[in-house]
């Protein structure tokens, strides 16, 4: 009986110690205390760190909870939105056409199925490419990432090109594709004669004053302000870094930078803002060059993109009718979309 009691107590102790649950937000706040309190109420306490920005007629308010004001978060697929802005700019500059085929810009892919894909298809998830490489190697990396918290997307550009040559266009239109945006970013960089991170820096980050933002591709490029994120079960995971993934999910930024991006999308001053214009149906919404337009229950239209990596979750949305934009960055991987949308609805009427 004593043995049983000891076992139960020890088992519960180990279980509680390892209980799969995200961290709770600490009290540490920088920025707007009122916004921080509102973010806690709407988005909950289950985050390792949380940053929120609201851009509206009254100006820009930001709050960071559980991290320094300049802490950089992984923004995940919001990076695709930046790639969409780059496509719109390349079209304006005449560097590419909507119908330019991938192989015209990336000759290594001539003769491969993906070489025949048009840029507009990549930007609207209608290329037929899968969400990610369908290879035994990628499956193994995904499993290892699940088991150990490792980065599943460390591929270099050359490695990705080799994989892409054998990738069929077998997915139905509307299949969300990280791979598609990796190809799009690479193609746009080739059209401009530079690398993707440099292209994004020149044409989006610098013009908008997003001075801290960037596309680190190796751990050496991370600094003290680069947060480590955690999975939904509270395990600290490795940062997602990789040359190939940069156009689809490699952007790291602090909340001030993301507020500047959101503000420029809201007032139409962002370079390549035409990317937000809806071009076709996408899973019950409309999609432009990466940016999704949704109609809310109250009839308002939100243009948005979300993001998720192994340790982060993010959302950026603008409501031009109300003149409001919201950014949410979390250092925990559980999605923040629902709370962020609520913030956009409610903060717009404040």
């Amino acid at each position: 009986m004593l043995l049983l009691a000891v076992a139960v107590v020890l088992g519960l102790a180990v279980g509680v110690l390892l209980r799969p649950a995200p961290s709770r937000l600490p009290e540490q706040v920088s920025g707007d205390a009122g916004l921080a309190a509102r973010a806690r109420a709407v988005l909950g306490e289950d985050h390792r760190a949380l940053a929120v920005a609201v851009v509206g007629p009254g100006g820009t308010r930001t709050a960071v909870i559980g991290a320094p004001a300049g802490a950089r978060f992984e923004t995940g697929s919001i990076s695709k939105g930046v790639t969409g802005l780059l496509l719109a700019q390349a079209l304006e500059r005449g560097e590419v056409r909507e119908t330019t085929r991938v192989a015209e810009l990336v000759p290594e892919l001539a003769g491969a199925p993906v070489g025949e894909v048009e840029l507009r298809q990549l930007a609207t998830h209608t290329s037929g490419l899968p969400v990610q490489p369908v290879t035994a190697g990628q499956l193994g990396r995904n499993l290892w990432a699940t088991a150990s918290g490792a980065n599943p997307y460390p591929a270099s550009e050359a490695e990705r090109l080799a994989t892409l040559r054998g990738t069929p266009l077998s997915q139905p239109p509307g299949t969300y594709s990280n791979l598609g945006f990796e190809v799009l970013g690479l193609a746009l960089a080739r059209a401009a004669g530079t690398s993707y991170p440099e292209l994004a820096r020149e044409r989006v980050l610098e013009p908008l004053g997003m001075d801290a933002a960037g596309y680190p591709t190796s751990p050496d490029e991370l600094g003290a302000l680069d947060l480590r994120g955690e999975s939904g079960s509270g395990r600290v995971v490795q940062p997602w870094l990789g040359q190939a993934m940069a156009p689809a999910g490699g952007l790291r930024a602090d909340v001030g930078d993301m507020a500047r991006l959101a503000g420029a999308l809201l007032d139409g001053s962002a370079p390549g803002v035409d990317a937000l214009e809806p071009r076709q149906a996408f899973r019950g919404h409309q999609i432009g060059w990466a940016w999704i337009t949704s109609e809310a229950a109250d009839g308002s239209r939100h243009v948005w993109h979300d993001g998720g990596t192994g340790g982060f979750s993010s959302w950026l949305g603008v409501d031009r009718d109300r003149g409001t934009a919201v950014v949410v960055l979390s250092a925990t991987a559980d999605p923040v979309d629902e709370g962020a949308e609520e913030l956009l609805r409610t903060e717009g009427s404040r």
Binding site: L3, V8, L12, V14, P20, T146, A147, G149, G232, D334
Partner: peptide, 25 residues
């Protein structure tokens, strides 16, 4: 590592660890 266990499910996991400890006993 692989399954989201929000709220009460995470406490069910704790219970399963305790059950395993009972098995070890």
């Amino acid at each position: 590592a692989a399954v989201p266990l929000p709220g009460v499910l995470s406490w069910c996991w704790v219970g399963a660890v305790a059950a395993t400890a009972v098995g070890v006993a």
